[in-house]
């Protein structure tokens, strides 16, 4: 009883705070200084059409590196927590029934298309909506489809881990190369900016975008895989 009253009280206080925030909210009519800087300098400094990707990969690239690291830690902890006992080889860890003909055939047809879409979204991150994180998630959903179609098949752990560490290393390496040959860590001027709006433009953004996509996709795939392959209690 007291518990419910306390919960109600807390939600009421929080709700009234939210209500005053909403009532007092004035939508801005001008960009603030940071956003205006990003908007006006996106073309000459970074050369990317998509300002969101430009901010994510160049101006705030270090934060993105940190975020990818957090994701890596999550994947590592999930596999540490779950994988005390891996299912023996050949046995289905998750114990799902074998999937039907439809799903197996559909997977074979869809998987290349999904991988293609993922690669497109990753490589065009500086031109259209999309980028590393979205493309990585699309790749991971392809891996998920594979797991669903054939639950007893073992994923190549080694491949996933190698892709993950290689892309992470290359990301950091590009950043360090920027320190040596350009203005600073993850500086975009390492490669020429190229023509505004072309696929191979905007300095290192497409490369970093693909690297982030591979890393994020590998991390999600390894989370899914450790959830799937743990042996039943």
């Amino acid at each position: 009883m007291i518990r419910n009253a306390l919960i109600g009280l807390m939600l009421f206080i929080l709700g009234s705070a939210f209500l005053t925030l909403t009532m007092g909210f004035e939508p801005a009519t001008e960009l603030n200084r940071t956003a205006a800087y990003y908007a006006t300098h996106a073309q000459e400094e970074v050369g990317a059409q998509n300002v969101v990707t430009a901010v994510l990969i160049t101006w705030r690239g270090l934060d993105t590196l940190g975020e990818v690291t957090v994701l890596f830690l999550t994947a590592a902890i999930v596999s540490l927590v779950l994988s005390r006992s891996k299912a023996p080889k050949g046995a289905s860890g998750s114990g799902f029934l074998p999937s039907g003909e439809l799903l197996t055939t559909g997977t074979k047809m869809l998987l290349p298309l999904i991988a293609l879409l993922g690669a497109y979204v990753m490589a065009n991150g500086h031109l259209t909506p999309g980028g590393g994180f979205q493309g990585g998630a699309i790749l991971a959903s392809g891996a998920l489809l594979m797991l669903l179609a054939d639950p007893s098949r073992r994923f190549g752990h080694k491949i996933i881990h190698r892709v993950e560490s290689a892309s992470g290393l290359a990301f950091v390496g590009l950043g360090l190369l920027g320190m040596l040959f350009a203005g600073g860590f993850l500086d975009n001027k390492l490669l020429p900016l190229g023509q505004f709006g072309a696929l191979f433009s905007a300095g290192i953004i497409p490369i970093v975008s693909v690297l982030i996509g591979l890393k994020v996709g590998a991390e999600f795939a390894s989370i899914l895989e450790s959830l799937e392959e743990t042996e039943d209690a």
């Binding site: 998509n50 969101v52 990707t53 998750s94 114990g95 799902f96 979204v121 909506p129 999309g130 980028g131 994180f133 979205q134 998630a137 699309i138 991971a140 959903s141 998920l144 999600f220 989370i223 899914l224 959830l227 799937e228 743990t230 039943d232 209690a233």
Partner: peptide, 30 residues
Amino acid sequence: APDVAMTEAAIGSGLTTFLFFYVLGRIRRE
């Protein structure tokens, strides 16, 4: 915010739901 929309559609509604179902199915069977 098309970038955010893509991320939310791929991650929020796709992968999260499947993570839940993996754990849910496991717990049901056990």
